[in-house]
Design a protein around this nucleic acid. Sequence first.
DNA 1: TTTTCATTTCGTTATTTTACGAAATATAAA
DNA 2: TTTATATTTCGTAAAATAACGAAATGAAAA
Lengths: 114, 114
Amino acid sequence: MRNYVKIFKALSDSNRLRILKMLEDCPMCVCEIRAVLNLANSTVSKHLSLLRDAGFILDEKNGKWVDYKLNDKTDEPQVRKLMKLMTEWLNDEARIKADKRKLEIVDRNKICNI
Amino acid sequence: MRNYVKIFKALSDSNRLRILKMLEDCPMCVCEIRAVLNLANSTVSKHLSLLRDAGFILDEKNGKWVDYKLNDKTDEPQVRKLMKLMTEWLNDEARIKADKRKLEIVDRNKICNI
DNA sequence: TTTTCATTTCGTTATTTTACGAAATATAAA
DNA sequence: TTTATATTTCGTAAAATAACGAAATGAAAA
């Protein structure tokens, strides 16, 4: 039961939904997400750890950066089902489309040194 | 986007999940739910209005009582998909099974006058 | 090694959520 | 109509959540 609540809580915040939808396109580091969402690094980091604890994403060290990506191969059936639904949902939302456009321009080498 | 957040928020509380799982078995009034969950009537009422505003349940006046029931025929695809998943989920949880057993004993004519 | 910089953790504040009891509302029963 | 009772609304208190900046951490570059 607690796990279900954790999973649904992870999805019940608009910034976390925006993060998940962006990660459908490509892995991202904290500062790239920060640049799109206009939040503090520490806030983004907190959102990411919530999504990771719920099972939706994985992190992977890549040199200076930590890349976050969707946990596509999770063996938690609830998370897998919900992730599949999420790929079909929110695609027509103006906010989500704008995020994905902005994401294409963001270059971690230019925006990270803040 | 706001609607998605509302829908997931509705599902991200253990008492509301317990209510939804009980309503899979039969419609219930506030005081029956109150008797199973051991919450104040006003608290149950608030949970129910959240679930209703998110689209998961409907209310129907029946004499003295207001019966709440699942909104099975909703035309909101997200709600319908999630409700379908919920019928498959949580069925083995001890808490949920205990609620359903307790629910069978509860008689609104005996417990409501509080 | 020292410096740089991406990320996380910590402490704090503001907001939201959950819970309660009391009062208000509405309907059935007397 | 009056009384009884099921439900909702209101006001409030406690707990959880989301946000920030500053400090700590850790790995790459100099």
